[in-house]
């Protein structure tokens, strides 16, 4: 067995240490944001906070939780992410299955593939898109967050590549049993593609969770904004030269700590979901079902 050999053990030790170090390097910025969120405003504005809070306080979190817009936008974001992800995954599965076939089996697949990919590269830009949204009556409507982004070509292509890895024998057996393609997809392909579906689901969730521009442009009320849009409007620094000065707003201006708290709370749901999805990355799922 290779992993008992001495050179491999040494390699493994160094490898693990190196990767842990890399992990540490990746977590530091988030710790910094956390430290800022628990620090006093004066210290944060002076850039005195590194990795540990200065003058510990939870004021920023109280302000965030007490902001009704934060909570309502959190709910919109959850709704958007769940509905959007389910729809995207459903459409991707349906479209990826036929496109994963060879062109000898499904003649039109190449045409379809290019029709799909073309939309990844070319776009008419914002103006005509806006007109379409408006004519469809999606302006100031929750579904504007869902429908335009329902088809994710990138994920569809990823999935079709995963589907190609599904052993042919499985499919043929099903078809010979008289199952249609819909049933083959659902009862054969999907169960063996769990790692792929988990990956796609995660990507889709993250995409929906982080999208902010559509909310800003097509929704009118802050209360309807998804969280990412709301956060975007608070994080951006203001250019004071182009606005009129109101002294009472000065106080509200420097919200570094509150922003940090909101960034952290805003990212938290997608951060904690990953470890749960990892259990789908278990090796041998495909093989297991072949043996059955």
């Amino acid at each position: 067995m290779y992993h008992k050999t001495v050179p491999y053990r040494i390699f493994n030790l160094f490898n693990t240490a190196f990767l842990l170090l890399l992990g540490l390097l990746c977590v530091l910025p988030l710790i910094h944001v956390l430290a800022v969120s628990f620090s006093a405003k004066s210290a944060a504005d002076a850039n005195l906070v590194n990795l540990w809070p200065v003058d510990f306080t939870t004021v920023a979190y109280e302000k965030t939780i007490n902001n009704p817009v934060f909570l309502s936008s959190l709910w919109v974001a959850v709704k958007r992410t769940v509905i959007g992800t389910v729809l995207t995954l459903g459409l991707a599965c349906l479209a990826a299955y036929p496109m994963s076939k060879e062109s000898t089996v499904f003649k039109g697949r190449n045409v379809y593939a290019w029709v799909f990919v073309f939309t990844m590269i070319f776009s008419g830009g914002l103006v005509p898109f806006y007109v379409v949204i408006q004519k469809l009556g999606l302006m100031n409507n929750f579904w504007v967050l869902i429908l335009p982004a329902a088809v994710n070509v990138w994920l569809t292509i990823l999935l079709l590549n995963f589907f190609r890895g599904v052993p042919k024998e499985l499919e043929e057996a099903a078809l010979i049993d008289g199952a249609g393609h819909f049933r083959t997809l659902i009862s054969i392909y999907l169960p063996v593609s769990l790692p792929a579906l988990a990956t796609l689901g995660l990507f889709s969730m993250v995409f929906h969770w982080n999208s902010w521009f559509d909310g800003l442009l097509y929704l009118h009320n802050k209360a309807d904004y998804p969280l990412a849009t709301f956060l975007q409007t608070v994080i951006v620094q203001k250019d004071m030269s182009s606005m009129s000065i109101n002294p009472k707003e000065m106080e509200l201006l420097s919200q570094k700590t509150v922003n940090a708290a909101q960034i952290f709370l805003g990212a938290l749901p997608v951060l904690v979901i990953y470890p749960f999805l990892q259990k789908f990355f278990v090796k041998g799922l495909v093989l297991g079902s072949v043996k059955e």
Binding site: L91, L94, M99, V115, S123, V131, V132, L147, V151, V153
Partner: peptide, 22 residues
Amino acid sequence: FHLMILPSLLFLIVFAYLPMAG
């Protein structure tokens, strides 16, 4: 196969190809 692709295709036509006129 065509039927399976149809929903995605419709979405792409409305939200990608139509605006490409721009």
